[in-house]
Design a protein around this nucleic acid. Sequence first.
DNA 1: GCGTCCAGGTCTACC
DNA 2: GGTAGACCTGGACGC
Length: 303
Amino acid sequence: MTFKMKITIKTPPNFNFHRTVLSHGWCALLPFELDKEKWKLVRVLDRGQTKPITIEITATRTGLTINTSRTVGKRAAESIVRDVRHMFRLDDDLTQFYAAMAADSDFAWITDQGAGRLLRSPTVFEDLVKMICTTNCSWALTEKMVTALVNELGEESDDGRKSFPTAETMAKQTAAFYRDKVRAGYRAPYFSELAQRVASGELDVEGWLKLDLPHDSFMKEMKRVKGVGNYAAENLLKLVGRYDGLALDSWTRAQFAQLRNHGRAASDKKILRFYARFNSWRGLALWCDMTRHWLNPENIAKW
DNA sequence: GCGTCCAGGTCTACC
DNA sequence: GGTAGACCTGGACGC
């Protein structure tokens, strides 16, 4: 497609575009699309009352370049910059994290490479819905559910790509829709209930970004959403900037066994003990540790 | 092609 | 508070 307008953003000195884009699976879920040959991340952004806009993000030595699918005014451009800063965690202060990692020879590569910024969606609502789509199923099914949500309910951008549906749009659909069209199975009623709670204002998930609660209370709050258990809540906590939970699932347990326990299964307590020295950063330390090899050339080809 | 089994995380009922 | 079984899909496997 032809891009109409270019916006640039300066990034922090330790920012690593590749590590952030491939920090976890979100770059492979619509409305993100990754061109791994050219290292371009495409994203459709919801613009509220107006048509969604498609942006293409690439990295330069000192910043990000954003090409947009149409020319926009100053306010819209500022809003796009806000969304990109949010998605790439450009305003997260990781100073203490990097200091802790640099002090441990096994983890110093994280500081050296500027890993640890976990890509997120422009809204907590989108991250929450996607997180529920990752529970209790294969990654292929997660992709299928998210693709159906975007294709069935998203709004078209200038280039025909679609945005992620808003809570208001999702609230209008029945559980049968999520079961039959999205193939969400038993999660179907969870989606309609969640969307209705958010759309009505009863549940303010965007407020989680500024919510200052102890870990256990925060977990309790997130688990009030049906379909969110320990794994989903601890992963969501990472996306709002809290890293004290390990978010263990079958994949991370298997990875730990392979990379840190001579191929033998380890108890959750043992995994917790291993990363306990990183205190409130332990969840992020674990995730970086388990995904270090993702940027090896032979692994990039698999994305 | 069909039937069966299994993995995956959360919910609910029960102890 | 802890636990067993149900939930649902898709892939692997055997026939």
